[in-house]
């Protein structure tokens, strides 16, 4: 009798779990950054600031929603939704434990990469619809950057795919039962570095946050957004970061593999994903921002050729030694 309910129930649970994680990851980042900067961070709302994300959410909901007079209203209003949806969809194919996920597609990673590239549409709509020069410059930068960095992102993510011999995410995770792909000699480490760099860039996080670039473009594409629309954009960005961290943990850090009973799997998965998130955060809070032309040069002149070479090298190794995983 509940069989028809399942397709609704599972996404509902996953969605809310993700929203909860995303909300609290902001607190984690703020605490982590505060410690880096010899501060304490949020402390007043709840014990050790534990209720801060909820207070933030309530504040954002109660804020006035200001729409600029000259904005292109339909595009302006639609943009946060268009932006946040792909960032939520990317969680659809992630298996949180063997058999525990919304849809373990056999082209799971392809779906992930395709959907995560779609967020650019929302970004550009936000930048264009705001009718603001800062926002428009930011939107132009966004298109440049996301296109440039999706290619190295895909190529570096394809290295574990080749090693595992499958596009299915649960297969890739299962293939690492013996050896995590980050420990795969040479190839694993290089692919992981390339993955982290291109993840940071395609997530638009510092030092690659030229879209937001508040010292030049004030707040970039979201300069005209306030209240819940701003919150949606922020939510989407963090969801994307968390999604990419989960993907990194799944591709390189053995996903749910860890000591202890099997039901601890999701916990290990969460911990490794958070480790990747903290690595990205560490980079974010210690580098100065890089310029737009330098970002593009880094992608097209260094990262893209090297990830391509890495992919070819992986293919040769896999053919030579046989697929290790399956």
């Amino acid at each position: 009798m509940t069989a028809w309910l399942l397709p609704f129930l599972v996404p509902f649970i996953v969605m809310n779990a993700i929203l909860g994680i995303v909300t609290y990851v902001t607190l984690l980042e703020r605490k982590f950054a505060a410690r880096m900067q010899s501060r304490i961070g949020p402390y007043r709302v709840g014990p050790h600031g534990l209720l801060q994300p909820i207070a933030d959410a309530i504040k954002l909901m109660m804020k006035e929603d200001v729409v600029p007079t000259a904005a292109d209203r339909p595009i302006y209003n639609l943009a946060p939704i268009v932006f946040v949806l792909p960032c939520m969809f990317i969680f659809a194919t992630i298996p949180f434990a063997p058999g525990l996920g919304v849809a373990d597609l056999n082209i799971g990673i392809l779906f992930f990469l395709a959907v995560s590239a779609m967020e650019i549409v929302g970004l550009f709509m936000a930048g264009w619809g705001s009718n603001n020069k800062y926002a428009m410059l930011s939107a132009m930068r966004a298109v440049n950057q996301v296109i440039s960095y999706d290619l190295p992102f895909i190529f570096s993510a394809l290295t574990p795919v080749l090693l595992a011999g499958s596009l299915k995410l649960s297969d890739i995770a299962a293939a690492q039962a013996g050896l995590w792909f980050i420990f795969y000699p040479v190839i694993g480490q290089l692919a992981f570095i390339a993955f982290i760099v291109s993840t940071v860039a395609s997530e638009n996080r510092a030092p690659f946050d030229i879209l937001e670039a508040e010292s030049e473009l004030v707040a970039g594409f979201r300069v005209e957004y306030s209240g819940m629309k701003f919150a949606l954009i922020q939510l989407g960005e963090y969801a994307h970061v968390i999604g990419a961290s989960f993907l990194g943990a799944l591709l390189f850090l053995g996903a749910w593999a860890g000591p202890g009973p099997e039901w601890l799997g999701p916990v290990w998965f969460l911990i490794t994903a958070m480790l990747i998130f903290l690595l990205v955060t560490w980079v974010r809070w210690s580098f100065v921002r890089i310029r737009v032309d330098q970002i593009l040069a880094l992608s097209w002149k260094a990262l893209l050729p090297s990830t391509l070479l890495l992919l070819i090298a992986t293919a040769i190794v896999v053919v030579w030694r046989g697929v290790p995983g399956v």
Binding site: A33, M36, Q37, A206, P207, D209, E212, A213, E214, S215, R284, W285, S286, F287, V288, R289
Partner: peptide, 9 residues
């Protein structure tokens, strides 16, 4: 470096 990046540190 931006208020939300290494510059703030």
């Amino acid at each position: 470096g931006g208020a939300l990046g290494g510059g703030a540190t």
